[in-house]
Design a protein around this nucleic acid. Structure first.
Lengths: 338, 338
DNA sequence: TTGTATGCGTTATCAA
DNA sequence: TTGATAACGCATACAA
């Protein structure tokens, strides 16, 4: 702590410029190289990233904004994002806005004041102005799991439409026609895409859309619980359900257990997201696994690329494929009288 | 972007010194005050925190290190921690080390290079050297949910012993004697404390300790699942179980549902931690709620205090009380033959 | 109360 | 290839 280039320079008998050049990988005379190297080691010198940032107008920090730190899907992605950027010696300021738009705005301002070199946003249309401002200030932005109409940004999304199509199709192939969906939040970008996949699968197989089968659980487990309960109270309950996220799945399964319904005998299930408890639930669930590792890595890579000034292929609209993991939660519709 | 104090000074017709003083709340002549204020507004001036940091040797940033970003208990605390520090215009660098000690070390080094003004650590004995180094460099450290033997640091913990005592006692009061515990990781600070509470409750009521009833689920849901399964295979299975964290509870309940055991008729349950699904599970669980808000806030407050140089009452060993939320998961031991 | 000048730890420019 | 020096944006000691 506290030993500076000046100290190193003196110790090595060279000038600060030489030390700086050594640090930044410029070549210098063999002999000086050694002297500087030794001095650095002996003194335990560490460069001061703050001062460096002041000079280069680089903070070596990126800002990440997620809705909630307790949303495991986001934090899983952030984990791999961090791994990606730390390789290039970037660090991360992680903020959540708790679904409060005013707070979202403040957080983005905050990051800008902090001179972050780039921003990863788990949010979309809600804060166009902020995004615009960031981009005007030449701070690259990558948007995950969202989209911003009217603004061009790099985006990383899974192929929601395709994944939902395949999930729904899977149920159809097992003989289901009464297929319900427990979707996220109405109007939300992701939810709309997933709904679209569901609908187009049904259309493709000439199955009539039943509005009663389309429910919104706001991505929460309590929502999933309620939706499932409601679905079973339909005049003609579905024989299968497609659930579009993890938390709602938890809630739905809780409801199912309470009602003593057996999966897949009474009800078939396919859902989104793999998490810890998936491996523990029996019968095992069939689900769409979003490659969170890949998402985080992609977002990080694109952002770093932009930070370096490489604007090729802007704006990128990454669509990442999902894989379906086969469990035992789907069977032909059999017993439908609970 | 890019407007500096120099610009403001010129615009206001004063010197940079005056602007700086205005910014930092020193008093100046009414007239100058107004001029500076206006200039700042007109130019949209924002101070450069990086430059400020270089000068003051303050980064206005604290480092937070948690085991995993996907551990909801930690992230809930971090959320309230962030709320606390942001009030004083501090920001947070959040890192996880994925239970990898080498990574933990690197993360702490990283934060130190980043000149964080303080560190909150969700880790303990594993990295004494790092903690010592931080403190030698006068970077205050607050440890949450842990303890570091041989080093004095401020700590924030819940009263694990007391909470576990009360939880166990609750089961005893309902008439149970065959009480099992599904504990975290053997040897771990928290786990040891919770075990101690469990044991001393049994001792207090003259109930013999049965080693077979003490299981370790490593804080994971798969662990909780397995432990519960094993417990029920004991020659004389417990009539009640105390589970010491959220993930293990999830796993245990999954097992219980699979086995078609009824709570509390066949088995009584008390556990740690409130989270989303608690409100959804039926019968409702009786649980110990750790005041995550309070923990985060306390840690933040203590750290800020230390950063300001106030070392009074060092080292603080905050013990935060928990509250027990009454559900319907406890009944007298009745049917014990599953 | 204010202005000026210096320094925080780096990097970049310019001569040498 | 190197050294000296001027920035980067801000805070502060000192002088006025």
């Amino acid at each position: 702590m506290g030993t500076t280039m000046k100290d190193v320079a003196r110790h090595a008998g060279v000038s600060v410029g030489t030390v700086s050049r050594y640090i930044n990988g410029y070549r210098l005379k063999e002999i000086n190289m050694k002297k500087v190297k030794m001095a650095i080691e002996e003194l335990g010198f560490k460069e001061n990233i703050i001062a460096k940032g002041l000079k280069n107008k680089r903070s070596m920090t990126i800002g990440v904004v997620i809705a909630s730190l307790t949303d495991i899907f986001s934090t899983t992605i952030v984990t791999s994002l961090e791994k990606t950027i730390e390789k290039e010696n970037y660090s991360m300021m992680l903020c959540d806005y708790n679904c409060n738009l005013d707070r979202l705005h403040r957080k983005i301002m905050f990051l800008q004041d902090r001179m972050v070199d780039g921003v990863v946003l788990f949010a979309g249309n809600e804060n166009k102005e902020d995004v615009r401002r960031l981009m005007n200030n030449e701070i690259p932005v990558v948007v995950i799991d969202s989209n911003i109409e009217g603004i061009e940004t790099d985006r990383v999304n899974v192929d929601n439409v395709g994944a939902s199509f395949r999930a729904t199709e899977k149920l159809i192939h097992s003989g289901h026609e009464r297929i319900a969906v427990i979707n996220g939040t109405k109007g939300d970008f992701i939810a709309e895409e997933r709904l679209q996949g569901y609908i187009s699968a049904l259309n493709t197989y000439d199955i009539t859309i039943n509005d009663e089968y389309i429910r919104y659980g706001n991505y929460s487990s309590i929502g999933g619980y309620n939706c499932l309960m409601e679905l079973l109270e339909c005049k003609s309950p579905p024989t299968s359900v497609f659930i579009t996220n993890y938390y709602m799945t938890i809630g739905a399964i809780t409801a199912i257990n309470e009602l003593d319904i057996k999966i897949p005998r009474h009800l078939s299930l396919i859902c989104f997201d793999r998490f810890e408890i998936m491996d523990v639930i029996k019968p095992s669930l069939t689900f769409i696994e979003q490659p969170t590792d890949r998402i985080g890595e992609m977002a990080g890579r694109i952002l770093l690329k932009r930070i370096k000034g490489d604007m090729s292929q802007f704006p990128m609209d990454m669509r990442i494929n999902t894989r379906m993991v086969m469990g035992k939660s789907i069977a032909p519709p059999g017993v439908t009288d609970h």
